[in-house]
Design a protein around this nucleic acid. Structure first.
Length: 648
RNA sequence: GCCGGUUUAGCUCAGCUGGUAGAGCAACGGUUUUGUAAACCGAAGGUCGGGGGUUCGAGUCCCUCAACCGGCACCA
């Protein structure tokens, strides 16, 4: 038999017979390694211990101490164990696919009856029994026809469809967990007992379309999470609870920021506290845009369908638009208008007023544009996905040669704004030309080159999403990372050669002829509603002082202090600080608790002592210590602290 | 839009297999003048999401609509 040479992580090489398995290799090293081995990395690929190795390769044996492969195997085996448990409990359930995902796995089933939460308990119990049985895991390679015949015989139509969709004549791999068989590319553990029985949990049932297509049958998906040990599972569940505590919907209620109600789904009712955040953010953005030489405009919300027909939205976006029909006086037919879902067509109308010269370009038109989109009922989510929202929108009209500089200027602005708002890290994704597109390849080369040139010039890393651009131009997406590691796509920069053409935008060039400008769609926050939701969750409600809706509460300890409390509040308000008095007949403990829960950053407690020495006792949110400061000093300190970052 | 779940007092939630609704907090009225995360007492508060049905009787069972929650699909 042919020999192959395997290279170990320490650089040592050894020869083995071709077809040797990683299990054999581990056993040849030591019995303890053979026991501990769970899989191997063979030339970087994750290999099952049972798979034959047929060529020279780098090899490293994995044990449970190797976090990534261990978790992948545990989760993947659990997917199979769960499917086996489900088919044991309900033999007529059809199986489909069950991949590993972040923190766990899911498996999609076809079953007439819905799975209930009680079913999940029963499945978990059955899974534990399978794990405790320590059933061996076996694997074989089958040819397609055998596999198809097998699944036809077993009446598993989804598996048949799956195999038929696998291209070519590739042989297929089968796995057995005990007697239970599943088509799977592997790798897997060696027996079900290697899965920790106390470190997984079935989380939820949800509908999911077969192969992700809403035209297909809807299956039932069961989600599970799994870790290497019970403590990790516990930590994960604690993390989920912590994340739930920063849910902006919950905090929005507790902090009296906003509400939503049935009569206006997806439309925000901002309360005084929430609107204060909104205004602070808007004022900040307005200053930043003005300094970056944007011109702010305001355009109509209700616009005749004629304009939407011209812009192409009526054809492409109609089902997402709120339509307004009006009986005009004397008119034979109803006039049909739409609430604008986007600002771009209106901005072109502003651009088109008066003949533009190349000297006017780049022209940056900004609007805090109030838009409405009829989002599908199942997609709405607090402030994150709404039907009525306001974009920090702007369109830059420029020549092709100006795109790169505009792009660089935009990224610089975005980066500075994210940093001011507390987001140090963001990623850039470039979406390039799709298959179906307008414009010549030379144009695309130039425009894509302008975007990459801008990013590279700034020395920033970026990822490419090939073919994911719009048909009218490439785009950049900007994703920021929040305090608990979640990513949010907020900023966008899109090059558009289509809308200016459709709506007849032009300028007179140096050559005296008319040319079409490019239009750059761009946003930094995305929508104010969503961004405020992100801010609330990022800060867990403890917003930075300049954004906090109620910055200071001045609380009396005794009623004799009320007059002095009033004096302090008046002094702070005179300096623009959002201060409130709390002179209710309550103990200071009660007031401290209430305003801590309400996320007020600074509490000034005033008792007899403070009245006498004209001082204040300062307590900051999240800190149990207090500090006594003179009246004049606290006013000066808080004024400095309340200054927005761009004005410091 | 689809699958599943939920909807009871201002808020958070109880209410078993159908017999006519309950707690804590808040708000209100008193008492208390208080020193850094919930003082005490009292009275009050609900067409049980909307509509329809079954039943002698519905918060509870059925149908339907809506909103919300978890996913899926969507997010040119």
């Amino acid at each position: 038999m042919a020999q192959i040479s395997l290279t170990f992580p320490d650089g040592n090489k050894r020869d083995f017979a071709s077809g040797v398995t990683a299990a054999d290799v581990a056993a040849s090293i030591s019995t303890s390694l053979a026991k501990k081995a769970i899989s191997a990395q063979v030339d970087g690929k994750h290999f099952d211990l049972q798979w034959p190795i047929n060529a020279d390769a780098q090899i490293a044996i994995n044990t449970m101490a190797d976090e990534a492969p261990a978790l992948e195997l545990i989760r993947h085996d659990l997917a199979h164990i769960m499917a086996r448990a489900v088919q044991k409990l309900w033999p007529d359930v059809k199986v489909t696919i069950g991949p590993v995902i972040q923190n766990g796995w899911y498996y999609d089933f076809d079953r007439a009856e819905p799975f209930t939460p009680e079913d999940l308990g029963a499945i978990e119990k059955e899974m534990k029994a399978i794990i405790n049985a320590r059933d061996p895991v076996k694997t074989e390679v089958w040819d397609r026809s055998r596999a198809i015949a097998h699944y036809i015989a077993k009446n598993e139509p989804f598996k048949v469809e799956l195999i038929e969709a696998i291209p070519g004549d590739e042989p297929l791999r089968m796995y057995w967990h005990g007697h239970w068989q599943d088509l799977c590319r592997g790798p897997h553990l060696q027996n079900t007992g290697q899965v920790p029985a106390d470190a997984f949990k079935l989380m939820s049932v949800a509908g999911a379309y077969w192969r992700g297509d809403s035209a297909n049958k809807q299956l039932q998906r069961i989600y599970g999470v799994a870790f290497k040990n019970r403590d990790d599972l516990k930590a994960y569940i604690t993390m989920l609870e912590e994340a739930a505590k920063r849910d902006h919907r919950k905090l929005g209620k507790e902090m009296e920021l906003f509400h939503l109600q049935e009569e206006a789904p997806g439309m925000v009712f901002w309360h005084p506290n929430g609107w204060t955040i909104y205004r602070a953010l808007e004022d900040y953005m307005r200053r930043r845009l003005r300094i970056a030489n944007y011109k702010e405009i305001k355009t109509p919300q209700v616009v005749d369908r004629v304009l939407w027909e011209r812009s192409g939205h009526w054809e492409a976006y109609r089902e997402n638009m709120f339509i307004v029909e009006v009986d005009e006086e004397g008119a034979k037919e109803k006039r049909i208008n739409a609430l604008k879902p986007m600002n771009c067509p209106c901005h072109v109308q502003v651009y088109n007023q008066g003949l533009k010269s190349y000297r006017d370009l780049p022209l940056r038109l900004a609007e805090f544009g109030s838009c409405h989109r009829y989002e599908s009922s199942g997609s709405m989510h607090g402030l994150m996905r709404v039907r009525g929202f306001t974009q920090d929108d702007a369109h830059i009209f420029c020549t092709e040669d100006q795109i790169e500089a505009e792009c660089a200027g935009f990224i610089t602005l975005l980066s500075s704004i994210y940093s001011d708002l507390g987001f140090a890290k963001f990623d850039i994704k470039l979406s390039t030309r799709p298959e179906v597109r307008i414009g010549t390849d030379e144009q695309w080369d130039k425009v894509e080159g302008a975007l990459t040139g801008a990013i590279e010039h700034l020395g920033l890393p970026y990822e490419i999403n090939p073919g994911d651009g719009a048909f009218y131009g490439p785009k950049l997406d900007f994703k920021l990372t929040d305090a608990i590691g979640r990513e949010w796509q907020c900023g966008t920069f899109q090059v558009d050669a289509q809308l200016p053409a459709r709506l007849g935008a032009e300028y007179v060039g140096e050559d005296g002829a008319k040319h079409m400008p490019y239009m750059l769609h761009r946003a930094i926050l995305g929508s104010f509603e969503r961004f405020i939701g992100i801010l609330i969750e990022n800060y867990a409600g403890k917003l930075p002082f300049w954004l906090a809706p109620r910055q200071v509460v001045v609380a009396s300890i005794v009623s004799d202090a009320d007059a002095y409390v009033g004096e302090i509040v008046a002094a702070l308000r005179a300096k623009g600080i959002r201060a409130e008095a709390d002179t209710r007949n309550e103990k200071i403990n009660y007031k401290v608790r209430e305003h801590s829960v309400g996320k007020v950053p600074v509490l000034l407690a005033i008792g007899q002592k403070e009245v006498e020495e004209r001082s204040v006792s300062v307590r900051r949110l999240g800190d149990t210590r207090t500090e006594t400061l003179p009246f004049a000093q606290i006013v000066a300190d808080l004024v400095a602290e309340a200054t927005p970052p761009d004005l410091r």
